[in-house]
Computed example of a mutant assay.
Amino acid sequence: MKHARNNDLSDRRSAAAEAKSALLSAFRTASTTDEPARLARQSERATIAAAREERRLERERVKRDEAERQAAEAAERQAAADAASRAETEAREAAERNRIARVVDDAAARKAERDRRYANRKAKPA
């Protein structure tokens, strides 16, 4: 026989209440005896969390510094490339101006030579 005695509703309710009060008293005694260890664990966790946060902030600072350094290097490279491009453009324009000046001078010299030949021809007695 599994249940030798007859469990009425009142018996079951009283057994449940006794079990509940036993659990509650066990919890209270466990929490009061475990209080110093719990506080120590809590303070250790807070210390670990603070150290973790400090390491995270340091990582973010390093990342930010690295990003700023890379941005500065990129700006320097861009400025150097712009200066080189500007110098190349100015050199190309100067060469073009010199070529144009030579062409104009050559044209003027040819015209002057032509005018001189024409004048000599006109000056010859016919």
Rank of each mutant, 00 (worst) to 15 (best):
K2Y: 07
A4M: 07
R5F: 08
R5G: 01
D8T: 15
D8F: 15
R12E: 14
S14F: 03
S14M: 13
A15F: 12
A17C: 00
E18D: 11
E18Q: 05
A19P: 02
A19M: 14
S21D: 12
A22C: 03
F27L: 09
F27N: 06
R28L: 15
T29Y: 08
T32A: 06
T32M: 08
T33M: 09
E35W: 12
A37Q: 07
A37T: 07
R38M: 06
L39C: 00
S43E: 13
R45T: 04
T47P: 00
A49Q: 13
A49H: 07
R52S: 13
E53N: 05
E53T: 04
E54R: 15
R55E: 09
R55M: 11
R55L: 11
R56C: 04
L57R: 07
L57N: 11
E58R: 11
R59G: 02
R59I: 13
E60Y: 04
R61E: 15
R61C: 03
R61F: 06
E68G: 00
Q70T: 08
A71Q: 13
E73K: 06
E73N: 11
E73Y: 06
A74Q: 11
A75T: 08
A75L: 14
E76S: 05
Q78G: 00
A83D: 13
A84D: 08
S85A: 14
R86E: 15
A87W: 00
A87K: 03
E88I: 02
T89G: 02
E90Y: 00
R92K: 13
R92T: 14
E93D: 04
A95R: 14
A95H: 05
E96Y: 01
R97W: 03
R97Y: 04
R102F: 05
V103T: 10
V104D: 10
V104H: 02
V104N: 03
V104Q: 05
V104G: 01
D106K: 02
A109S: 10
R110K: 12
K111L: 14
R114C: 01
D115F: 05
R121L: 08
K122F: 04
K124I: 06
P125S: 08
P125C: 01
A126L: 08
